[in-house]
């Protein structure tokens, strides 16, 4: 009985941590993965439909809300939505002003996108862990992991976007030559040390997106695992642990969004600086 319970618990956890994967299976061709093993066998040419769907939904929700507020924006007395949106915008503007030391009007909107998008995606975690898997299970979909930021693909994808922006602005501000010089001649300004510098700087450059992605993913994934573990408890004990953990996660959710955004601005600020 105990072993049975254990097996079902392991199954439950694995089930909740498996994304809805669509891809080319070596045997079944293009199809939805029906087991975790199948999803792994699909390799790189597969896509997590739940991660993509929910993240795009959150992005559209964010842009829709803010776009609506922008269309109705008046310089007079703002309404409720405009007030809320302006608060966020002002917060991001101040954050950008205090962190980014350069003149680029695009940094603040980039930071806004990152912050609100990640915040919305993280917030999905506050929803009870069983609702959506159960609902989509009834609809015939085997897996449904609704929090995109607990998928390393999503966080790494965004971090990759930030990475491209870093490289883009580095080249735009310093020129390709200037960027190459920065990579090869710092921190040791001597031609003999160019290879050493290159290794150091390129590692430093690549570590930036990876640290961004893994920090967010790690926090969200760990939190999700704890939620799932709590959900395994007897029903009368769930809320005793679930409520404090959820309240604590309101903090983690916004903090992680804030950290991701701030670090992105810092990296972009560094990309704009001449040495």
């Amino acid at each position: 009985m105990a072993a049975d319970n254990e097996i079902s618990a392991i199954y439950y956890i694995q089930h909740h941590l498996q994304n809805l994967t669509f891809g080319r299976h070596p045997e079944n061709g293009w199809s939805l993965a029906s087991t975790s093993a199948e999803a792994t066998e699909m390799g790189f040419w597969a896509i997590h439909l739940d991660t993509m769907g929910w993240s795009i939904a959150m992005g559209v929700l964010f842009l829709g809300l803010f776009h609506k507020a922008g269309r109705m924006a008046t310089t007079g007395v703002p309404g409720g939505l405009q007030n809320a949106v302006e608060m966020v915008i002002e917060f991001i503007e101040n954050l950008t002003r205090s962190t980014f030391h350069g003149k680029n009007p695009h940094i603040a909107p980039i930071a806004l996108t990152l912050f609100v998008w990640i915040l919305l995606m993280n917030t999905l975690k506050i929803l009870p862990v069983d609702y959506f898997p159960e609902l989509f299970g009834r609809l015939g979909l085997e897996y449904m992991k609704i929090v995109p930021t607990t998928d390393v693909n999503a966080t790494l994808g965004m971090a990759l976007g930030v990475f491209f922006l870093i490289v883009f602005y580095s080249i735009k501000v310093k020129g390709a030559g200037g960027f190459a010089k920065e990579l090869s001649l710092t921190p040791f300004n001597h031609w003999l040390l160019i290879p050493f510098n290159l290794i150091l700087e390129i590692v430093g450059l690549i570590v930036k997106p990876i640290s961004l992605a893994l920090r967010l993913f790690g926090n969200m994934f760990a939190g999700e695992v704890i939620f799932i573990l709590i959900a395994l408890l007897p029903f009368w004990a769930i809320w005793v642990l679930d409520v404090p953990w959820a309240i604590f996660h309101i903090l983690v959710v916004s903090l992680q969004a804030f950290i991701f955004t701030t670090l992105s601005i810092v990296y972009l600020s560094a990309a704009h600086e001449h040495h």
């Binding site: 891809g23 790189f44 390393v152 999503a154 994808g157 990759l160």
Partner: peptide, 19 residues
Amino acid sequence: MNINMTLIGQTIAFAIFVW
């Protein structure tokens, strides 16, 4: 926890949202 095309999809989504 497989790295797959979701990564690229997410990057593209990010780019579109930022734009």
